[in-house]
């Protein structure tokens, strides 16, 4: 069972990287919207795992995406930020509940799940586009990109989430 569970995460990691770089990086919806569905990996990642390992994995995920999309290490910087902030976000969304042993993502309400995902996406995109554009003169451009890409990412992540439901875990 334990090996099965690691195996699942490895497969998920590889598939999400490939889907991201081969499909979603080429989408260019309206000329600039490229949804980042690989955030789902961090959304789905088990809660009771070692935090340091989680941040390390987030870094690897970001770097893998960076290699393919020639974005220096911007994806890595944003993924480690949400990996680090995830417990805080979860405490905000689910209250103290999530620290109990019996806590499961699938047991929470739909609204909570969406809020949790949306917060992850907003933080991630904000760090990403700030670093990518790297000038406060273009703050409006950053906001526009965060909102437009964030909305697209959220919709796609929800669709993916309902396609590959994690009820089994």
């Amino acid at each position: 069972m334990v090996s099965n569970y690691y195996f699942l995460n490895v497969i998920r990691f590889i598939l999400l990287v490939l889907v991201q770089v081969l499909v979603f990086n080429k989408l260019n919806f309206f000329g600039f919207i490229n949804p980042m569905v690989y955030i789902l990996f961090l959304y789905w990642y088990p809660i009771k795992e070692n935090r340091a390992a989680f941040i390390g994995l987030a870094f690897l995920l970001g770097v893998a995406i960076d290699f393919f999309s020639d974005t220096m290490a911007i994806h890595a910087a944003s993924t480690i930020t949400i990996a680090y902030m995830r417990p805080a976000i979860m405490r905000f969304v689910f209250g103290v509940n999530f620290e109990f042993q019996s806590f499961k993502l699938s047991n929470t309400t739909r609204v909570q799940q969406i809020t949790y995902l949306a917060l992850l996406i907003i933080v991630h995109h904000f760090v990403f586009f700030t670093l990518e554009i790297f000038s406060l003169d273009n703050f409006l451009l950053i906001l526009k990109k965060v909102l437009a890409t964030g909305a697209a990412t959220l919709i796609l992540c929800l669709l993916f989430g309902s396609l590959f439901s994690v009820r089994k875990e």
Binding site: I55, G56, F59, G62, M72, A73, I74, A76, A77, I80, T81, L131
Partner: peptide, 9 residues
């Protein structure tokens, strides 16, 4: 890790 990423960037 943030330093590493920012360094590269």
């Amino acid at each position: 890790l943030m330093m590493v990423s920012l360094g590269f960037t």
